[in-house]
Simulated scan of single mutants.
Amino acid sequence: MIPYGRQSLDQADIDAVVEVLQSDWLTQGPTIERFEQAMAARCQADFAVAVCNATAALHIACLAADLGPGDRLWTSPNTFLASANCGRYCGAEVDFVDIDPLTWNLDAFALEAKLEQAERDGTLPKVLVAVAFSGQSCDMRRIAELAERYHFTVIEDASHAVGASYAGRPVGCGEFAAMTVFSFHPVKIITSAEGGMILTNRPALAERLRRLRSHGMTRDPEHMTEPSHGAWYYQQVELGFNYRITDLQAALGLSQLGKLDEFVARRRELAARYDRLLAYLPVTLPSPQEEAESAWHLYVIRLQTERISLSHRQVFEGLRAAGIGVNLHYIPVHLQPYYQGLGFAEGDFPEAERYYAQAISLPLYPLLSDEQQDHVVEQLRRLTER
Rank of each mutant, 00 (worst) to 15 (best):
I324H: 04
D247C: 08
E317V: 09
E36H: 05
S192Y: 02
E378F: 07
L380H: 08
Q358Y: 00
D261Q: 10
V237D: 01
A82T: 10
P363I: 14
G323Y: 07
E207S: 12
P227W: 13
A57H: 03
V17D: 00
P69E: 12
R302H: 08
V283N: 02
R307V: 01
Q373K: 07
I331N: 03
R354I: 10
D71T: 09
N105S: 13
W104N: 13
E371D: 11
E306F: 06
E371S: 11
Y243R: 06
Q44V: 09
Y338Q: 04
C62K: 02
D348A: 13
Q289R: 15
D121Q: 15
L270R: 03
L335I: 14
L277S: 08
Q117P: 12
Q249I: 03
S369Y: 03
L239W: 13
P186H: 01
E290Y: 07
A204P: 03
L9Y: 15
G174P: 08
R307N: 06
C173Q: 04
A357W: 05
L26I: 13
Q340L: 06
E36K: 03
D139W: 08
F35I: 13
M39P: 00
E148M: 15
R149F: 12
Y166G: 01
S137W: 00
L252P: 00
I190F: 10
L115A: 05
P363C: 11
Y365T: 07
M140A: 11
A41N: 11
P337Q: 00
E238A: 08
V154C: 10
N327H: 14
E351T: 15
Q304K: 14
T225G: 03
L26K: 07
D348P: 05
F263Y: 14
P337L: 00
G168A: 14
R34P: 02
G341D: 10
V264P: 06
F184A: 03
L364C: 09
V17I: 15
S8A: 08
S134F: 05
L106A: 04
D100H: 15
P203W: 04
S159T: 10
Q289W: 08
R307Y: 05
V127H: 00
R302Q: 14
A92M: 11
I245A: 06
L124C: 01
A45S: 13
R381L: 12
E112K: 01
A177T: 11
L111F: 14
S369M: 08
V129C: 04
G91M: 06
G70W: 09
L248F: 08
I190M: 11
A250Q: 01
E385N: 12
P3K: 01
G318E: 02
L106P: 07
E226D: 08
F184S: 01
R120Y: 13
Q358S: 11
Y365A: 02
A321F: 08
R268W: 03
A322P: 11
L111K: 02
G122A: 03
T153V: 15
I308G: 04
Y243A: 12
E145F: 11
A345C: 15
Q22K: 09
I245C: 04
L21H: 12
H160K: 01
K126D: 05
A251E: 01
A113Q: 13
N105R: 15
E36M: 02
A84Y: 05
A61N: 03
Y355C: 08
A177Y: 09
A279M: 04
P186A: 05
A161F: 07
F241T: 11
F152Y: 11
S361W: 00
A61H: 05
Y338H: 02
H215S: 10
E351M: 09
R320K: 12
N53W: 06
L205V: 15
P227E: 15
H329C: 14
G323R: 03
